[in-house]
């Protein structure tokens, strides 16, 4: 008896006009797995990640999260497109962390974290604030609750962004190059938070250029190149003994 995988993709394609970004991505990510997506820029890593929570609509192929199709509902032999409301409900169970943090600039760190739980889940304000304090504690920012994003460093902003996503109690966390916009000395603090999260058993899909993180924390690594998964497997295998010349070439550039 096998449990349903958290994310299952079969031949997922996506194109912007004449540019084919995804040309048939197939992969399976199990519950509790920490999957790292690596690859050169333009390989479709971020696009694939954004398809998972329907920020982008994929063109063809099957993509399902926790057993249900993203953006569609299967009834009999037909796929019905989901309404905006249903898509929002799906998204609320998937956390996302962006390269450029995207914290709400008019709200304090605390208000950033409580907005989702209050407005989407309908939790009472006092409960949401209590939970937000716990989360800020967890990412090491308990004294920054009343600061606006512009008053925080990049690393602190990204940690608040992680706390904001966690406040929705997601079953899956997506990270889109979470450390790429950070100064080198701030990368560590964000990776530490992600490491803790991985150890707590969260299913995570991380688009990253941090090969050290992929090897240390990742359960699996997927190398995307020109819109397909070119190589995948255990990070300590794939990253140490790459098979395809394209991965060898890529690793020689980033390491």
């Amino acid at each position: 008896m096998t449990t349903t995988p958290m994310v299952e993709a079969k031949d997922v394609t996506k194109s912007y006009g004449a540019i084919d970004v995804l040309r048939g991505v197939t992969l399976t990510i199990q519950r509790g797995e920490v999957a790292c997506l690596i690859g050169p820029s333009g390989s479709g890593k971020s696009t694939f990640l954004r398809c998972i929570n329907h920020l982008e609509k994929h063109d063809t192929g099957e993509l399902s999260v926790d057993g249900s199709f993203v953006g569609y509902e299967r009834r009999g032999n037909k796929l019905y497109e989901r309404t905006d409301k249903e898509i929002c409900a799906e998204r609320s169970e998937i956390g996302m962390v962006f390269q450029r943090f995207n914290l709400f600039s008019h709200l304090t760190a605390l208000e950033n974290i409580t907005l989702g739980p209050i407005k989407v889940k309908g939790i009472s304000t006092s409960d949401a604030i209590e939970q937000a304090h716990l989360l800020l504690d967890r990412v090491g920012l308990h004294d920054r609750d009343h600061n606006y994003p512009s008053q925080l460093s990049g690393g602190q902003q990204q940690r608040v962004a992680i706390a904001r996503a966690l406040a929705m109690e997601p079953k899956l966390m997506l990270f889109d190059e979470p450390t790429s916009a950070l100064d080198p000395e701030l990368v560590g603090e964000v990776l530490d938070v992600m490491k803790d999260l991985a150890q707590s058993g969260m299913t995570m899909i991380v688009v990253t250029h941090e090969m050290g993180f992929a090897r240390e924390v990742g359960d699996s690594v997927y190398f995307l190149d020109e819109g397909v998964v070119a190589e995948s497997g255990d990070p300590n295998e794939v990253l140490v003994r790459p098979q395809s010349p394209r991965l060898v070439n890529f690793l020689s550039k980033v390491l």
């Binding site: 905006d84 169970e93 600039s105 989702g116």
Partner: peptide, 27 residues
């Protein structure tokens, strides 16, 4: 208002109108 703000709001599960009212218009 930066597009990323709407994406972040949507990723939390806010609807288009909620994102507009709670995130975009105040900014």
């Amino acid at each position: 208002v930066d597009e990323g703000q709407v994406e972040a709001a949507n990723s939390l599960g806010l609807t288009r109108l909620q994102a507009l009212r709670l995130v975009v218009l105040p900014q």
